[in-house]
Nucleic acid binder design. Structure first.
Lengths: 341, 341
DNA sequence: TAATCTGTTGCAAACGTTTGCCGAATGGAG
DNA sequence: CTCCATTCGGCAAACGTTTGCAACAGATTA
């Protein structure tokens, strides 16, 4: 049914190997022959069968991209960037969603392993050991998690969390809440560590609430607990939760940032659209996707290597304002500017 | 390097065909032999090579999903639903992004054709003829566009647009704007047609502004033009544009819905989070994704068939309010409820 | 003139499966 | 004890490519 290399060979009066070479090693075939073959191939609508090619070359020209939740707005820009970048290099991308489930994650990697030249593992929830093991089955690049010895692209959320907490401290907040993310998330641990350290250094309190599924609903559901802590500022694991919290607080008549300041992480497209506009830590997700593809596809001796850290940026908008302990001298020009905005 | 069927055969002392049958036709092999083979396969970490299998069976167990823009929040829920549904049926999904470019779209279908058992084409921008032609190369299910003779899953945006316009008319608006979507979009034509017909029937004006790229920025950029028309209500091609417009109007000091009412389409996750919360037409994207997968994978004589229309729902929130011509008698209970909300 | 090289092509094996066909073994019926 | 049916497993071809090897022609070199 489908037109194969053999049909083209017959129609142009050459051996199939010549047709094959016309496509995969053009310099080895006489220009005249080549153009003849190309012409008949075009005319017949021939397209090389990648599966057959993969079988013999061992290279599928496919990559896998495994994310926790496609519908989480953090991922689409990353997926898009990775896919576009991969396609530019003539690779196709399998996208799969684990629903935050480490078991599904494991299955998925194994199922995809034979079908791809490598896998991009986004924010994996598996244990380090499991990932280590999987690495032997298929080239892996991990995104958003640092594991010694494993190639990775991470965004420096530690830095982001530090900046965010420092921003809150500068505003005069002394009791903060970290609204934690899902169990098993490296990002979550990083944020928690950095936020804790920064708060501690300044002699401020940091209460951790969680773990939580990183969705809007849990952010909203946490409002009660947040208020009960008596904290005046909240750093959320991601914008989704921050926005959920924002909503729930306002529904309860709590003013943001008047009574409680809220900071998110990710800078998803909509964090600038909610009211008040969300102060958040911007993550370079597109760049991360591209970097990960590059790393995976790098002409490898044996597999991808290296660890890349991308910088994050605190974006100050309107969901953060002065806290209860703003010292007279601290209301300097910079902070004043934030407050005013 | 990778463990093949042959390794398993050798290790368990049977012929490779027996191993093959153990996996693809278990009932043909002695339970005892089967469990022995299964055991060694497990121990060796054997996984069937799908490419090789595809070569001989002609079924890849992959499908392609082509969308205009992964980062457009309309698509991720659809992608997620389709992927999850496909995986449940043991299919993997290639996801690709055309960036709204019909050329890329065409290339993509052809490139993917040999590698998949079928392709889901979301909101294609190609011409009907082109799609018709492609259908001969690979089984196709079109989402969000109706083409005679082609299997499709569409959401009834015509109905949605009618409901939306009727809602605005009921509120007393007599001059409406339709902020159009991209050229080549079937959805766009449907909305325009239905909105126009509904307005015309009621003797109201409908000004069409566009075509536009379906992103937030163009919605914002259109604010000026919208105001210039003097219309009191706007229906946007999608929520993204509606939200952009909302923002821009408010930035100009125009009250929504006080001075201008705005209705979106899609009900993306964030339309309920902006202020005012957006009145919009909800599209069952998840259901559409699943239906399309089912249609594509239906045990087919020759290819998928049928056309499914999924119903849409007008969700009334706070971005719509009474218009300048609200007749005394029209402020019935239902409308009053809307207004109050 | 013989030897060597270069460029172009054909030949055939290989990649990891599936599957139609055939033969061997087993067991039940007559 | 023979015959037949059934169950099981092996054999080998096939899927559409790539690629090392060899053959051949013509050109270059010695």
């Amino acid at each position: 049914m489908a037109v194969t290399i053999r049909d083209v060979a017959r129609a142009s009066g050459v051996h199939i190997s010549t047709v094959s070479r016309t496509f995969s090693a053009p310099h080895l075939v006489n220009p005249e022959t080549r153009s003849r073959v190309l012409a008949t191939a075009e005319q017949l609508g021939y397209r090389p069968n990648r599966a057959a090619r993969a079988l013999i070359t061992g290279r599928t020209h496919n990559i896998g991209l495994i994310v926790a939740d496609i519908a989480n707005p953090f991922f689409p820009p990353l997926i898009k960037a990775a896919e576009t970048h991969a396609r530019r290099r003539d690779y196709h991308v399998f996208v799969a969603d684990t629903d935050e489930d480490p078991i599904v994650e494991l299955d998925l990697v194994q199922a995809l392993a034979k079908q791809v030249d490598g896998i991009l593992l986004c924010s994996p929830r598996m244990s380090d050991d499991q990932i280590e093991l999987l690495k032997r089955e298929v080239p892996l690049v991990v995104i958003n998690r640092l594991i010694t010895g494993l190639p990775a692209v991470v965004m420096d959320v530690g830095l982001g969390a530090r900046d965010a907490v420092q921003h809150l401290l500068d505003l005069g907040h002394r009791h903060l809440v970290y609204l934690a993310g899902p169990r098993g998330s490296w990002t979550n641990r990083e944020i928690r560590r950095a936020a804790g350290a920064t708060a501690r250094t300044a002699g401020a309190d940091l209460t951790v609430l969680g773990p939580n599924q990183p969705v809007e609903e849990t952010g909203a559901a946490a409002a009660e607990a947040v208020l009960k802590t008596g904290a005046s500022a909240v750093l959320a694991y991601n914008d989704l939760m921050a926005i959920g919290l924002l909503q729930a607080l306002q529904d309860r008549g709590v003013e943001v940032p008047g009574q409680v300041s809220v900071v998110g992480i990710d800078d998803i497209a909509y964090s600038g659209l909610v009211r008040p506009r969300l102060t958040t830590v911007a993550n370079p997700t597109g760049a991360a996707g591209r970097a990960a593809v590059d790393m995976l596809l790098q002409q490898g001796d044996d597999g991808p290597t290296g660890q890349v850290t991308l910088r994050t940026d605190l974006i100050i908008r309107n969901s953060t304002g002065p806290g209860p302990y703003v010292p007279a001298g601290a209301l300097n020009a910079e902070v004043a500017a934030h407050v005013k905005e």
